[in-house]
Amino acid sequence: SIVTKIISIVQERQNMDDGAPVKTRDIADAAGLSIYQVRLYLEQLHDVGVLEKVNAGKGVPGLWRLL
């Protein structure tokens, strides 16, 4: 499923980069989806406690990390 793919992308990127959070844009590119589509999935995963959003604010790139 797309959700499983997104989780594995975040996991893979974090492992490659010493646990650093992953940008929404990088996840979207790797999943082959638009940034808006991916954001909806990321928000859902956040709501159920799978991911945390590391930063927030208007015009700030979203950074995500697995919990």
Rank of each mutant, 00 (worst) to 15 (best):
V38W: 01
A56F: 08
G59C: 08
D26K: 02
S1Y: 09
H46Q: 11
G57N: 06
A30V: 04
G62A: 15
I6P: 00
K53A: 05
L51H: 00
L42N: 00
V50N: 00
A20F: 06
D29Q: 13
D29T: 11
Y41V: 13
I9H: 03
Q44I: 14
D47G: 10
S1N: 09
G32L: 03
A56T: 11
Q44K: 14
V50H: 03
A28L: 02
T4C: 15
G32R: 06
A56Q: 10
V3L: 14
D18M: 10
H46L: 11
A28W: 02
G57H: 07
G62M: 14
R65S: 08
E12R: 10
R39L: 15
A20E: 07
Y36G: 11
W64V: 02
P61E: 15
W64M: 00
N55W: 12
G59P: 04
T24F: 01
R65K: 10
R39I: 14
K53L: 08
L51Y: 01
P21M: 05
R25A: 12
D26Y: 10
P21Q: 03
S34P: 14
R39G: 09
Y41D: 00
P61C: 15
V50K: 05
G49D: 03
N55A: 10
Y36W: 12
S1D: 13
N55V: 08
W64D: 02
I27L: 04
V22P: 02
Y36Q: 13
K58H: 11
G32H: 06
G59Y: 05
E43M: 08
L67T: 13
R39M: 12
A56C: 14
L67D: 05
S34V: 09
I6N: 06
D26M: 05
S34K: 06
L45R: 00
P21T: 04
G49H: 06
L40C: 14
L66K: 02
L67M: 11
D17V: 11
V38P: 00
V38K: 00
Q14R: 02
I27N: 00
S1H: 12
E52Y: 04
L45T: 01
L45C: 02
S34H: 06
L42D: 00
L66G: 02
D18E: 09
Y36I: 11
V38I: 10
I27S: 01
Q11C: 13
G32M: 07
V22W: 03
T24D: 12
E52M: 06
G49W: 02
V50G: 00
E52P: 02
L66D: 04
E43H: 08
D29Y: 11
E12F: 11
T24W: 02
L33C: 04
Q37V: 13
S34Q: 06
A56E: 09
D18S: 12
Y36E: 14
L63R: 11
L40F: 13
D17P: 06
G19R: 05
V50C: 09
K5L: 14
V3H: 10
G32P: 00
L42Y: 01
V38M: 05
A31T: 08
L67Q: 09
I6K: 00
V60C: 13
G62H: 14
R13I: 12
E43I: 06
L51G: 01
R13L: 15
E12H: 10
L45P: 00
Y41R: 02
D18V: 07
R39E: 14
H46E: 10
Q44R: 14
V10W: 01
D26G: 01
I7E: 01
M16N: 10
S8P: 00
D47Q: 14
L45W: 01
A56R: 09
Q11K: 13
V3P: 03
D26V: 09
L66F: 10
T4P: 05
Q44C: 15
K53C: 08
I27P: 00
W64Q: 01
G57W: 05
V3M: 14
K53I: 05
A56D: 12
K5Q: 09
D17C: 15
Q37N: 06
V38T: 14
A30E: 08
L42M: 02
L42H: 00
G59M: 05
S8R: 14
S8C: 15
P61T: 13
L45V: 02
L33S: 02
L42I: 01
L67Y: 11
S1I: 10
I9P: 00
A31Q: 01
G62P: 15
R13H: 07
N55M: 09
E12I: 11
Q14V: 05
L63S: 11
S34E: 07
G57S: 07
D18R: 11
A56V: 11
D29E: 12
A30R: 07
K23F: 04
V60L: 14
L42W: 01
L51D: 00
I35E: 07
D26H: 06
V22E: 01
I2N: 04
A28T: 01
S1Q: 11
D17T: 15
D29L: 11
Q14T: 08
N15K: 11
N55R: 08
Q44T: 08
A20T: 07
R25V: 10
E43K: 08
I35W: 07
I9T: 03
L33G: 01
K53Y: 10
M16L: 10
L63D: 09
G49M: 02
S8K: 11
P61N: 15
H46V: 15
T24R: 02
E12Y: 13
Q44L: 14
L40A: 10
R39C: 13
L51K: 01
D18H: 14
V22R: 01
V50R: 05
A28I: 02
R39Y: 11
P21S: 07
R65M: 08
D18G: 14
V60T: 12
E43S: 06
R65N: 04
D47R: 15
K53G: 03
K53T: 04
Q37L: 15
A31V: 13
Q37I: 15
R13W: 06
K5F: 10
